[in-house]
Design a protein around this nucleic acid. Structure first.
Lengths: 197, 197, 197, 197
DNA sequence: TATGAATGAGGCTTCATTCAT
DNA sequence: TATGAATGAAGCCTCATTCAT
């Protein structure tokens, strides 16, 4: 007996994340998702338009949450731009390492889906990207960040790097412990590799 | 008129790269590949075990070439480690921007394939990664690269960043001109974002 | 209007028997079976693992029925062993001549399937063979059957003979009327051909 | 280097018999046959119209040989009908037990092929059957064989029994040693099972 | 005759989606 | 809403046969 309405939709989202993480979106079967969610196959179509819609909704929820968390950092006037980037990075890693299946889905499915379904993809993702831009712009203006850095390129630089490190962590958590990843990541973003001393 | 040996296999590889780039591996149909290659459907199976094998062979050829090109840079004793990294980056961008379809396939399909078929995936990729490690180690020893950088993490940091930038370039070449990407990328890798004045 | 449960599975079994009888198992197409059963192609796979499974299930049902019918004869203590053999023969012919398609499938497909899928083949067939052995052993002990007859050989002797006669009847029913077959068969089994006067 | 012409055709026939015996006619691939025969795939079609033709030719050679061997027995006036049947039985077993692959092909493929290709099937098989009829008729006339036996039915009775016993021998030679099969078979044909003492 | 790469029709099976209940 | 049996379009792959050499 379900506690309240809406549970079923969420069960399906959670089950899908698990299944997508395990075998990949294209090899996942709607029937398996339904089974994993303890729901009838047909019920999936009560809550979602089709299989792709499930994936889109996973990303919708993901970016909605991330955007909202990031927004408060973005609006904080007590810290400077590089600190904001560091906090956002921290938050980003935290969010995904708390849910390894979600991390795998993000790493493996977002690029393709984005290329295919640019129009329908979560607006929150684009708003999230905008937040990033604003923060970097702010840093460039205040002089804390190199002024010659292209904001758009930097955003995709950093996202790509994070994504790949998350993937390595998800695949081999022992070889890539989170602390080490985060420390190195922050250092690389801030100072690069050159020992300019 | 029979075409001389070897051509058909290559025709199929080229056609597959085009098709995979356009619609993605999973949505590609073997029949479409055959048509694009001007070959009968069955001929695909003369040269490849199955559809996945085509993708594996694309990566085999890709990494074999890249590894060999990178090896000569790696062995060059006249340049230091940061310069090697810069040259390798340059070569990497060149290789993929010369073949936008190959770039798309690399960006969109490699991670999933690697997760699924770790064992069968091109050994040259792993040898390529090893080259990268050696160069960074060398730089750390010689003092030109920060000694606290973890080599494994750095390799995946840089690869992820490049991959995502290649993707942006492939999707919106006008918004992400190659020169701008390369300049920014090199600067970010070398010095990071902090304006240390 | 959905048909009540159980019907579709049986429809498919009956349709398969007809199709297998007409063109042989290997030349039968799943699509034809589905059409003959007034069912969608995919529905076949709701009830059966694959095409071979249909054939296995046909034999499963066949030998289950035959075994159960034979068991009651076997247990009857009011008749002696030769009479039991006669009754079983009678029943055997009856069962197959009542369903000529089933007869054809039995005649044409069982040996190959048995050689290929010994493990999955109906256990009822082996239990049926055991019943035959028990009856002959019983006859040998009571003295009504030659004691020098090897039971295993006799079982396969008689089965082979019946099978081939069923085949002739199925192919040319006019040339091989059932009564004649049965009379001759029983006589041959009992007394052989020698006119020992 | 081949010794003489005609070898290749025979190589293919022998290879086919082996392959058909091992996996069954329908599951045999022409390419496998060619490989087994050390011949190119295309060469098979130099000597045979198609795959089915190979099977037909195997049976053509088989029944031609058997017919010729049986004819001399049939014409021998020094032995009576039951003795002829015994000799033919002996010959039959000898022929197949000398070539277990041929036995398997005979057992598993003849019935289906006969049902499908009645017209093209070896005339020698029908002539062989005729020999059998003549001998039995002769026995009935001379009084050595029960006069109420139907010749056609008897022929198929005996062929079916032999075929099934050959199959058992081919599958489990240890459980069904040839001597035992032959002794029992002859006894059953001659006297049946009833202990009429 | 001999070859074996090339062909492409065809079949089995899968699985997202529907719909009668 | 919820179900899950039923659907049938679609795709991968096989393999008998051909044919240019």
């Amino acid at each position: 007996m379900r506690i309240k309405e809406g549970d079923k939709r969420n069960d399906i989202l959670l089950a899908s994340t698990r299944i997508f993480a395990k075998v990949g979106y294209h090899k996942s079967k709607v029937a398996s998702i339904a089974e994993e969610a303890n729901v009838a196959t047909g019920s999936v179509y009560v809550y979602f338009k089709n299989k792709e819609d499930i994936l889109l909704q996973i990303f919708e929820e993901l970016w909605k949450k991330l955007y909202n968390e990031f927004k408060s950092i973005s609006l904080d006037t007590s810290i400077d731009s590089p600190q904001k980037i560091e906090q956002m990075t921290e938050l980003f890693f935290e969010h995904f390492t708390a849910d390894i299946d979600l991390a795998k889905v993000f790493v493996n499915e977002q690029t393709q889906l984005l290329n295919d379904q640019m129009i329908q993809f979560s607006r929150y993702y684009y708003k999230f990207l905008d937040l990033g831009r604003d923060i970097v712009e702010e840093g460039k203006l205040s002089g804390s960040i190199y002024s010659n850095i292209d904001v758009d390129i930097f955003r995709h630089f950093i996202l790509g790097a994070i994504r790949n490190l998350l993937n390595q962590w998800a695949v081999e958590p022992d070889k890539f412990p989170l602390d080490k990843i985060k420390t190195n990541f922050k250092s690389l973003i801030k100072h690069g590799i050159l020992n300019s001393k």
